[in-house]
Design a binder for these strands. Structure first.
Lengths: 227, 227
DNA sequence: TGACAAGCATTGTCTGACAATCTTATTTTC
DNA sequence: GAAAATAAGATTGTCAGACAATGCTTGTCA
């Protein structure tokens, strides 16, 4: 959840709890835990070197983000997503991302458009370079610019929440041959519509991109998800 | 957040922390705290008669729901919503509720439709009776049925989150003369489209309802919100 | 008036404890 | 031998109390 406004100075003090949450988040994104795997508080406390009180607060945060599941008296476990759920997420993401693109088409300023262009260029370089980390960073910048331009913190917030929940699906689908290149092409079309100030076109392009991502994710993860 | 599936047996064990969260939620909804009012942990602990550890976990939950704001080293305060933010919420709500209605139009079964009819009838009775609590209960039932019928837990979850954040606006706008009656009429139109299995019409009706609610809220709260 | 320091209030975090609940292994029963 | 009952162990829910770090208020000094 990088800041999407470069002018954004408000740096939230890093409490151990936020640090811990960040670490766990990374661990989950990077697949260090299996989906559905049970987490043991005492264990995590040792590994993160924090007290149980702090840990439990961090866990509540992750639970709110749906990255983990927190069942009373049974403790936390890494969220396991079903394909049905993933599909619902892609659907809503298409809806919201389409809306975001539509709004951004008329609101993005020169600076915002430039940020998107440069992020996309970076993405394409990363594709050529076969650099997953670089792709992820570029994508993040691209979307931060888009969401910044859509001028709705609510949309941005919901989208970031949804995307976080399917991060590992994205990573997986990107590994498929050609998908990264296709993705770049879709994003380029979207950017073209934005530059043309074509709101309906931008919406359509954004929706199309999500649709394609959904199909790719399905193909890449058949049988990998919980029923 | 009432269960929307009558068959739903899974009753989550009530830990003190959940109880406390529920109490605080109610207190905020009912306006027992002023928006922006600072909350003091030690205070709340005494009032709720729980330990600080449990309280802080409960606070994390409410913060995730955006009912309170949690700034490190400054503690919790009741969320103060700006009109700009409220408007964004109404916008997204329209989008999602429209989608939900659209989906529900083709998916709602007889039982679901019946539930909506009966909830609406109850709502209308509550309107005549000038019974705010009754209206709220009926509205909840109406929406639970709608969301159940839209067959997307993700949409339902996001909508409930958004609606919670503008609860006090809804309450306020409903107090305006005639608004409750108008609202009933809008819901009736929506239900008619659903019964006719008219997906686009249902979407339009749902969006129209939210639009009207937004206008009413704006009228009812001019000058009442933070800039 | 405005910068600055002291003092108080409040939060961040830890430790240690114990009862309630869940899980697993063991024993009993048919 | 398989199912049911039981006991043992592991894990979570919750609390109390402590202390340092930070934020806020107020009074002082220029």
């Amino acid at each position: 959840m990088a800041s999407m406004d470069p002018m954004d100075i408000k740096v939230v003090p890093k409490t151990v709890l936020h640090l811990a949450a960040e670490n766990l988040r990374q661990a989950i994104f990077s697949g260090a835990f299996q989906p559905g795997e049970r987490l043991v508080e005492a264990d995590l406390c040792r590994r993160l070197d924090i007290s149980r009180a702090s840990l439990r607060e961090a866990l509540r945060m992750l639970a709110a983000e749906k990255l983990i599941t927190l069942v009373p008296n049974r403790g936390p476990s890494v969220a396991a997503i079903s394909w049905a759920e993933a599909e619902q997420i892609y659907d809503v993401r298409a809806l919201l991302e389409g809306e975001a693109a539509c709004r951004a088409a008329t609101r993005l300023d020169t600076q915002g458009l430039h940020a998107m262009r440069s992020a996309l260029a970076e993405f394409e370089r990363a594709v050529v370079r076969r650099d997953p980390a670089g792709r992820l960073a570029a994508t993040t910048r691209f979307y931060d610019a888009l969401l910044g331009g859509c001028d709705s913190a609510v949309i941005a917030e919901l989208l970031q929440g949804l995307v976080a929940r399917i991060t590992f699906l994205r990573a997986r689908s990107m590994q498929r041959a050609g998908r990264a290149r296709e993705s770049a092409a879709e994003l380029r079309r979207l950017l073209a519509r934005l530059e043309a100030r074509d709101a309906p076109g931008a919406r359509a392009a954004a929706i199309e991109h999500v649709r394609c991502a959904c199909v790719a994710a399905r193909a890449a993860s058949t049988g990998v998800l919980a029923a």
